[in-house]
Each structure stands twice: as structure tokens, then as C-alpha cells.
């Protein structure tokens, strides 16, 4: 039986792949979105910032920021699932991955957002689930919450166009 790889090697490879995927998108930095990884599971983080406020009276998160957050979580989640298979399957060398040397990203076709509650002026989290992953099209469901995981403040489903397999 093959010996398992040392844990540091595995972690470093996966974290490098994730950093390359997320690090190259200026808008993700502008809004302040970050990603945490547990195995292959990603959680998107949206730290609270004054410039993400939409209603200064309440105050509440801007619906557009929420939309952007959900879309980013869905898109990165989908790209990550594909990248994970490539890196873990040995087809993609994580050591060679940089933001400008990534497989092409899926493209958003549409996104349908449900605003369930007011987004409070505090950190938000989101997780995406790829509900269908075809050769050409994919469907993703994404849910965002704040204090209470069981009480999401927004959710969305989206369709995405997958890049051609040979890049």
C-alpha cells in the first residue's frame, strides 16, 4: 500500500491552489471577501466594512454586496471543485499555480437571489453546493448567514457556463 503523503505537503498544495484561485480577482479584494478551507469544503467570509452598507439608517448590508458575495461564493466554489479534482488527481501541479496561470473560470449565466432577512452590520459567511456539474453547464446553490447558521439572510441559485476542458 502507498504511504500517505505528509500532512504539510497536502495542506500546502491545497492552500496554494486556493490562494491562486482567489488572489487574482481585484473585485474580491475590493469587497473584502476571503475563503477558509476545511478539506475540500470552502466557507466564504465577508468581514463587515462601512463601505458595504446599503441602508445607513438601520444600518444594513447593501443588497448588491450580498448579491456579489453569493455570486463570488458560488463561482469560487464551482471553480474550486474543478481545481480540487485536477490538483488532487495529479493533472494540475499546484506548485505551478499562480493567479495568472489558472485554468479558465466558469462564467455566470444567471443568478437568482432571495433576500430572506436584513443583512446586519457584522461579518457574513456563505457556503456553496454544486447541485449539478455537467460538461458545459453547472448549477450551484449558495446560502449566506451571519450569527446563526440555521437562519440564512440570503440564498441564491445560479447557472454557470463551464470552460472548455482543454482550456
Amino acid at each position: 500500500m502507498k504511504r500517505p503523503e505528509p500532512v504539510q505537503v497536502v495542506k500546502e498544495r491545497r492552500d496554494r491552489a486556493l490562494a491562486a484561485l482567489v488572489g487574482g480577482i481585484p473585485y474580491v479584494r475590493t469587497v473584502g471577501i476571503a475563503f477558509e478551507r476545511r478539506g475540500d469544503e470552502l466557507t466564504a467570509l465577508l468581514p463587515f466594512r462601512e463601505e458595504n452598507v446599503g441602508n445607513p439608517v438601520l444600518p444594513a448590508l447593501h443588497g448588491g454586496v450580498t448579491a456579489a458575495f453569493l455570486e463570488t461564493a458560488a463561482l469560487i466554489g464551482l471553480a474550486w471543485a474543478a481545481l480540487w479534482d485536477g490538483v488532487e488527481g495529479g493533472r494540475i501541479d499546484a506548485a505551478s499555480l499562480t493567479p495568472d496561470r489558472l485554468p479558465p473560470m466558469p462564467k455566470t449565466i444567471d443568478l437568482t437571489i432571495d433576500y430572506l432577512r436584513v443583512g446586519l452590520p457584522r461579518d457574513a459567511y456563505a457556503r456553496a453546493r454544486v447541485t449539478r456539474s455537467g460538461r458545459r453547464y453547472a448549477s450551484v446553490f449558495v446560502e449566506a448567514w451571519q450569527d446563526n447558521r440555521a437562519r440564512p439572510f440570503a440564498q441564491a441559485t445560479g447557472h454557470f457556463l463551464m470552460p472548455p476542458p482543454d482550456g
Partner: peptide, 15 residues
């Protein structure tokens, strides 16, 4: 959103 092509992120369009 797409640095290679200089395209605005869908999220900003949504906002």
C-alpha cells in the same frame, strides 16, 4: 473580476 481581460466582476454589476 477577470484580470486577463479587464472585465468588471458580475457582483459589481449586481450591486
Amino acid at each position: 473580476g477577470d484580470p486577463a481581460r479587464g472585465v468588471i466582476h458580475g457582483g459589481a454589476v449586481s450591486a
